[in-house]
Simulated assay, not measured.
Amino acid sequence: MGDRPEYRLAHNENPHAPAEEVAAALHATITEVNRYPEFRPERLTGLLAEWQDVPPASVAVGQGAGGVAHDLFRALLRPGDNVVSTAPGFDLYPMLCAMTDTNAVTVPMDAGGHNDLTALAESIDDRTRLVIVCNPHNPTGTLADWARLTAFFERVPVHVTILLDEAYIDFAPDFDGPSARDRLSAWPNLVILRTFSKSHALAALRVGYALASAALVERIRRHQLPFGMNQFQLDAVRAALGAEHETRERIADLVNQRDRVRTELLRLGWTVPDSRANFLWLADAERVEPAVAALTRAGVAVRPYPGRGIRLTVGRKQDNDAVLAALSEV
C-alpha cells in the first residue's frame, strides 16, 4: 500500500474531481502563464459580487478562506487583543492568533458538539475584538439555525467583529439563513467567510472570499498582496459557477453518503452528532485510539482529536464502505 493512505478522509476534501468545464478552463489558461494576473482581483471580485447579489465593495477574496482570515486578523487586531472561539475548532484560528500576538480565548463546545453561543457571548470582554463561529461547526458538523445565531449576534457589542465561518454551509441545504445582502444590512460588524475548496472541489486552487460591509472589506484589502490572485483561480471559479447544477448533484450525493454512514455508525454503537457538513464527528473519546489504529490498518486517514473524538470526511461509497468495515471491528 505504501506510505500514502488509500482512503484520504482527513482534510474534508471533496472526493469528486471538478466539473469538466473547470478542467477545460484550466487547460486553456496554461497558454497565458507568461502574463501577470490583475494587479487587484477586480474581475474575480465582480464575479462573486454578482453571484452573491452584493456590491463589489462588500467582497474580499484571498488564498482560500484561510488567506482571507489571515488578512482579516492583520486588519483588525493588535497584539494583546482577545479572539473568542469554540474549542475544538478550525485549527487555523489559534495559528493566526499566534501570528498576530493575540490571545485565543476558547470556549468548550456543548455536550452535543454544538457551539455554546451563550458561553461565547459571556466570554467577550473589553479586550475582545473578534469572535468566531464556525457554522456548520468544524470538527463536529453541527448547525445553529438563524434564530439562534441572531440571538447571539444581538449580544455581541458593535465594536466586536463577528466572523461567521461558513466553509461547509453548502452541505446544509436546509439552512434557513437570509441572503448575504440582508445579513450585512442588519449586522454591520458581521463577516461571512466562505470557500470554493469544499463544495466546488477547488481545494488546490485556494479560492476563498469574505462578504462584509464596505468599511470592513476596505480594511481587509489593505493587507492583500498585489497580483495575489491568479488567472487559474478566476477562470476556475467562472467555470465552476457555470456548472452549478453539476455541483449541486455532487453535493446531494455526498449528503446522501454522509447520512448513510451516520446511520450505520449509530447502528454499530457510535455516538455521532447530526452533521450538516461533509464530515462526521465520532464523539466516543475512549475509542479514539483503537478506532484510529483499525482505520490505519485499513488504509484510511482521518483526523483524530486525542481524548475527544475523530473527524471523518465523507468520501466516495468505496471509501465510506472501508471505514464502516474497519470500525465494525472496534
Rank of each mutant, 00 (worst) to 15 (best):
A325I: 01
W146D: 10
R303K: 13
A119L: 10
A243K: 13
R297E: 15
H200M: 11
E154H: 04
P139N: 00
P18M: 09
P173R: 09
T128V: 03
G113R: 15
G89Y: 13
P188H: 11
D182W: 03
L193W: 03
H223Y: 14
N278S: 14
V191W: 05
L216M: 11
D284E: 02
F196V: 00
I169P: 02
I162H: 03
A121I: 01
V158Y: 02
L268N: 09
I162K: 07
A212N: 03
G177M: 10
L234D: 00
F39A: 11
A291V: 08
R148K: 13
F39K: 12
Q231F: 08
E122T: 06
V323E: 01
R78H: 14
N278F: 02
I169C: 06
Q224A: 15
A121S: 11
A24S: 11
R258F: 11
Q233F: 08
A294F: 12
P108L: 06
A151S: 13
E154S: 07
K317A: 13
H27I: 03
F171N: 06
S123E: 04
I162F: 08
V133K: 07
T161V: 15
P290L: 11
N320M: 10
G228N: 08
L77I: 06
A291W: 08
L193M: 10
D284T: 14
A144I: 02
A252W: 05
M1Q: 11
N278E: 01
R127A: 13
M1K: 09
A49R: 08
C134L: 05
D284L: 08
M1V: 08
R316A: 14
R303P: 03
Y209C: 11
L9K: 01
I124Y: 12
R194Y: 02
T161A: 12
T100R: 10
T271Q: 14
R35G: 01
D91Y: 04
W281F: 15
R181H: 13
D321H: 04
L143R: 12
N320G: 03
R221I: 02
Q233T: 02
A291G: 12
G177V: 04
Q257R: 15
N103A: 12
D319N: 05
P188Y: 07
A203C: 05
